[in-house]
């Protein structure tokens, strides 16, 4: 079983927010945590979607 690029992209975004925790000033660290959590949520959801065979994204939507 191999995960597609989209879930891994959001995993990467989540890791980036966590990696930025150290240089982020203390008063903004909760932003990193909330965003890392949101990205991790999308990673899990998109991974489940792909594993369950419903993945691949939609063809309609935001861009023309």
């Amino acid at each position: 079983m191999r995960l597609g690029r989209r879930p891994l992209f959001f995993l990467g975004v989540s890791i980036t927010f966590l990696a930025l925790l150290v240089p982020t000033p203390e008063e903004f660290r909760r932003v990193n945590l909330v965003m890392a959590g949101l990205a991790a949520f999308w990673f899990v959801l998109l991974a489940i979607e792909e594993v369950s065979g419903r993945g691949g994204g939609t063809d309609e939507g935001g861009r023309a």
Binding site: R5, F9, G56, G57, T58, E60, G61, G62, R63
Partner: peptide, 10 residues
């Protein structure tokens, strides 16, 4: 972010 809702290649 909006483009990513379709697929990364979008």
């Amino acid at each position: 972010g909006v483009g990513t809702t379709q697929r990364l290649s979008a």
